[in-house]
Simulated assay, not measured.
Amino acid sequence: MPHISLPEHLPGITGLLEYRLDTALPIRELTQILLRGESTLTPGERELIATLVSARNETRFCTAAHTKAADLLLGDDETARAVKQDYETAPVSEKMKALLAIAAHAQRSGKDVTPEAVERAKRAGATDREIHDTVLITALFCLYNKYVDGLASVTPTDPVYYQRLGERIVQGYKRPPGGFPVPPKM
């Protein structure tokens, strides 16, 4: 049960963002820029970063949502699972493994990102912007994870819910015009 009164039909982060539209706007805009804006990392790769961070933070809602979005964007349901299990053996490029290592370090503490981790990423072909964006995506999802868990947002258990949410996330992070309608009572 959430710690505050939230729209019952909007579990997870969605209800929290609807609760405070003024704070939601810049958060959504930043998320849209980082995960769907111009980048040399694909949207699927950026969703893998969000997935890894959410899994390491043990935030079930965000982990399920971004795993499904990554699955849809990558066209398989094994890569995100493998990244969560052990990104070093996951079927991703060496550059992506190095960026995921940076994300893992930054998820624990920004001070855990070492010069060696950054050098590894650069040797694997990562640009300064990719390294920057990896750390910023990590920080953003730590914020989301603490937001969802700190207010005890509802976490659905139905995989169908996450399939639909993943499909919506694939389209981007902007609020639908008019918001999210309340479903009719059955």
Rank of each mutant, 00 (worst) to 15 (best):
V118R: 02
A139P: 05
K122G: 02
L74R: 10
P26V: 06
G178S: 11
R36M: 07
G110P: 01
A69Q: 03
T14W: 15
Y162M: 11
R36A: 11
Q85G: 06
I137T: 11
P7A: 04
N57S: 14
T127G: 13
R56G: 03
D22W: 03
T40D: 13
T23G: 06
A24S: 08
L41P: 07
L73P: 04
K97I: 09
L72P: 05
V154M: 11
T79S: 00
S39M: 04
S54G: 06
R56S: 05
A69T: 01
E29Y: 12
P184D: 08
V92Q: 06
T67E: 11
D77F: 14
P91Y: 10
L16V: 04
Y161K: 03
R175V: 14
G178T: 03
G172C: 04
F61V: 08
L72R: 08
D128P: 07
L34S: 01
A70Q: 07
T59F: 04
G178I: 05
R123K: 15
S93C: 09
A50C: 10
T67Y: 01
A124F: 01
N145C: 13
E38N: 13
P156C: 10
R28K: 11
K146N: 11
G44Y: 00
Y87D: 04
R81Q: 14
D149L: 03
V113N: 03
R120A: 15
L52I: 10
A65Q: 09
A98S: 15
R164I: 02
T31I: 04
I33A: 15
E45S: 12
Q163A: 06
G166V: 09
T89F: 00
L34A: 11
D86R: 07
R164L: 09
T89I: 10
A106V: 06
I169L: 13
E130F: 09
A70D: 05
